[in-house]
Amino acid sequence: MSSHHLFRSREAAVPLVLAVCAGVGLLALGTRAHAAEPGGIQLSGSAALASDYVWRGSSQTQGDPAVQAGFKAAAANGLYGSVWGSNVEFAPQTHASSEFDFTLGWAGQVAEHWAVDVNVLHYRYPSTTTDLDWTEFNGSVTYRGNYWLSLGYSNEALGSKQRGLYSQVGARFPVNDALRFEAAAGHYFLDDVYDRSYSHGQLSAIWAVKASASKANVELRLTAHATDRNAERIFGDSLAGSRIEAAVQASF
Score class of each variant (00 low, 15 high):
I41G: 00
D177I: 06
P174N: 08
V54G: 02
W114L: 08
A157L: 12
A33R: 04
A76I: 06
F181G: 07
G85N: 00
F7K: 05
S214I: 11
L29K: 15
G85W: 00
S199G: 14
R233N: 08
V141I: 07
V110S: 04
F102L: 09
K72S: 07
S212P: 01
S160E: 08
D64Q: 09
G57I: 09
G170E: 04
G105D: 02
D52Y: 05
A240W: 02
S154A: 12
R10Y: 15
G186A: 14
Y53S: 02
V83A: 13
A107W: 01
H4M: 08
W106V: 03
E219Q: 08
S199Y: 04
D195C: 02
T130M: 14
V169M: 07
Y188S: 13
V24D: 06
G57S: 15
F7H: 13
A246E: 05
A185M: 10
F189P: 04
G159P: 00
G186S: 15
S59K: 03
S197Y: 15
E37Q: 14
A35R: 08
R229K: 13
W207P: 00
A74D: 01
G23I: 03
A50G: 02
A35M: 14
L165V: 11
E89K: 11
A216N: 03
S82L: 03
K161R: 15
A184I: 06
E156A: 12
K161L: 13
A66G: 04
A226Y: 08
S51D: 14
E232D: 04
A111P: 06
E112V: 02
Q60R: 02
D237Y: 11
R10A: 14
Q62C: 10
S154C: 10
H225E: 14
A171C: 05
F102H: 00
A48W: 00
Q60W: 01
S167C: 15
N77L: 04
T61P: 00
A246C: 06
F100N: 11
H122M: 01
R124W: 10
Y80N: 00
G70P: 00
A76L: 14
A35D: 14
A19N: 05
T61L: 01
T227L: 13
G145M: 07
A205W: 03
D191V: 11
A66T: 03
G108A: 13
H34C: 11
S214W: 14
T31D: 12
T129A: 12
R32V: 11
H5A: 13
P15R: 01
W207Y: 14
S98E: 15
G105M: 05
Q42S: 05
A216H: 03
Q93V: 11
L190C: 09
T223K: 01
T130P: 05
A75V: 02
D228Y: 09
S97I: 02
A19E: 01
S51G: 06
V24I: 12
A224L: 06
R233P: 05
A226Q: 15
E182T: 02
A171I: 11
A13R: 13
A111S: 10
Q42T: 01
L220C: 11
